[in-house]
Design a protein around this nucleic acid. Structure first.
Length: 365
RNA sequence: UGUCCGAUGGUGUAGUGGCAGCACAGCAGAUUUUGGUUCUGUUAGCCUAGGUUCGAGUCCUAGUCGGAUAA
C-alpha cells in the first residue's frame, strides 16, 4: 500500500484553517495539525481583555476539536520565539519611526518558518494554512498568485516567503470563496466555528491599541515622548502630539491641531520627535524606494519593468515602473501618485494575478 | 486714558428678531490577518448682568476679557 502524503496544517481555531485541514483530509492526505501558543498571560505587554479567550485555553480547545475529528494535533508553546521574531521587530520598527507590516513579517519569520521546522520534526513533507492565495510551480519556481476570492486575497501578506517554504506549502482555500468555506465547515458539523468572527487587527494586541502596548512594554515611553511638536509644511508649530511612534504616514486620527480642515501625517521625524502635517493632497507620492526584495515568480530581476504595485493589504494597486539595481534595491515610479506609502510597509508587485516580488519601503520621495 | 472692533462646542466658523448650523478634533459603530485610510452614527456651544420685545446669539446699556489705534 502506498503511504499517504503527510501534511502539517497550522490551525488557529478559526474557520479557515479548520476548512483547510478538512479539505486536505478529503483529498487523501494524512493530516496533522499544529497550534502555536505565541503568547500567554505572562508575555510582557500583552493584555488579554476579559472578553477574549485566553490563548492557551483557546489552543487546548482547538487541540480537542482536532483530535475528536481524528487528526493528530500538536500544541507548541512558542511565546519566546514569537517575542524574539515578531514582537521585538514590531517595537524596534515603531521606535525607529517606521510602520512595520507585522503580518507579512510574522508569516516569513515566525508562522511559516516554525511550520517548516515542526513539519521536519513531525515527519511531514507538506505544510498548509488557511490563507487565501495560490501557489503553483512554473519554470522551476514556486509562484504565489491572488486568490479566487478577490476580496479575501492574502497574497500581499505572503510575499516574503522563500522558495524552500513555498515548495512544501499547500494553500487549499486559494480557489474558494469565503462564503463557500463557511458553508463547507458548517456542513461538516462545525456550525460554531463557521459563524466565528473574522480575526483582525494585530493578533497580539487584541484591543487594537498598539500605543498602549508599546507603553506597557517600554516603561516611561509616553513620559519621554509626550509634547512632541506638530508642524505644518511651512515649519510652523500647530500643536503637540503624544510621541512619534504612535503615528504613521497618512494618519489623521489623534491629531489635535485646532485646524478647521483635515490634516494628515506627511512625515515622521523620530530624532526630533516631530510630525509634519499637511493636507491630504500632499501625502500622495509618485516615487518610493524599496529594499529587502524577495523574488517570487522570476529569479533576480535587473533593469526596468512595468508592474501593478500594492502598498497595503486592501489596495487594488497602482501601475508603476520599477527599476531594480544590482544591490537588491529598487525604485518605484507610480503612474499615478499613491496615497501615503509608509516606510516599513510592504510593496508587492503583480503581473496579472501573480506575485512577481515584494520589498519593504525604505524611502519616500 | 480715549476711540474703534470683536467675543457662538475642545478648535475654526455660519446664523434677515422666529427650531443655533457647518468643518476639524473627540467618542461609538461598520470595514480589515499590519499601521493607516474610508464610511455611518453621536457628544458638546451663544462671555456676564440688566433692558426692549409675544419672542434676543442677533437690538440697547453697563461690565469682563481680547485685539487694533491715538497721545
Amino acid at each position: 500500500m502506498i503511504r499517504k502524503k503527510r501534511v502539517l496544517v497550522g490551525v488557529s481555531g478559526g474557520v479557515d484553517s479548520l476548512a483547510a485541514a478538512l479539505l486536505l483530509q478529503e483529498q487523501g492526505f494524512e493530516v496533522s495539525c499544529v497550534t502555536f501558543v505565541s503568547w500567554n498571560k505572562e508575555t510582557e505587554g500583552v493584555y488579554i481583555p476579559p472578553s477574549k479567550a485566553d490563548p492557551e485555553e483557546a489552543a487546548i480547545k482547538t487541540a480537542e476539536l482536532c483530535r475528536e475529528n481524528g487528526f493528530n494535533h500538536y500544541l507548541l508553546p512558542l511565546a519566546k520565539e514569537f517575542d524574539e521574531k515578531v514582537i521585538q521587530y514590531f517595537i524596534s520598527e515603531y521606535l525607529s519611526g517606521r510602520t512595520p507590516n507585522i503580518c507579512s513579517h510574522c508569516n516569513r519569520f515566525f508562522k511559516f518558518e516554525q511550520l517548516q521546522i515542526a513539519a521536519r520534526k513531525f515527519n511531514c513533507e507538506y505544510i498548509a494554512t488557511g490563507h487565501y492565495a495560490n501557489i503553483r510551480k512554473e519554470n522551476e519556481r514556486y509562484v504565489i498568485s491572488r486568490s479566487f476570492d478577490d476580496w479575501k486575497d492574502q497574497s500581499y501578506m505572503l510575499w516574503q516567503l522563500p522558495q524552500n517554504i513555498l515548495k512544501m506549502c499547500i494553500l487549499p482555500l486559494g480557489n474558494t470563496l469565503k462564503a463557500e468555506v463557511k458553508e463547507y465547515v458548517k456542513k461538516q458539523g462545525f456550525p460554531e466555528q463557521a459563524d466565528q468572527n473574522e480575526s483582525f487587527n494585530i493578533c497580539f494586541i487584541p484591543d487594537n491599541n498598539y500605543k498602549e502596548f508599546l507603553c506597557r512594554r517600554i516603561r516611561s515611553l509616553e513620559e519621554i515622548l509626550k509634547n512632541g511638536e506638530l508642524l505644518n509644511t511651512n515649519g510652523e508649530k500647530i500643536g503637540v502630539h503624544d510621541g512619534f511612534p504612535f503615528y504613521t504616514i497618512g494618519q489623521s486620527k489623534n491629531l489635535i491641531t485646532g485646524n478647521s480642515s483635515k490634516l494628515y501625517v506627511k512625515e515622521v521625524i523620530p530624532h526630533k520627535n516631530r510630525l509634519i502635517l499637511s493636507s491630504k493632497d500632499e501625502v500622495f507620492s509618485s516615487v518610493i524606494h524599496i529594499h529587502k526584495i524577495n523574488f517570487i515568480k522570476y529569479g533576480n530581476l535587473q533593469g526596468r519593468f512595468s508592474f501593478w504595485v500594492r502598498i497595503r493589504g486592501k489596495d487594488h494597486g497602482t501601475q508603476a515602473d520599477v527599476c531594480f539595481d544590482e544591490d537588491g534595491e529598487a525604485i518605484v515610479y507610480f503612474s499615478q501618485p499613491a496615497f501615503a506609502p509608509a516606510v516599513g510597509q510592504s510593496a508587492v508587485f503583480y503581473e496579472g494575478d501573480d506575485v512577481v516580488c515584494g520589498g519593504v519601503i525604505c524611502r519616500i520621495n
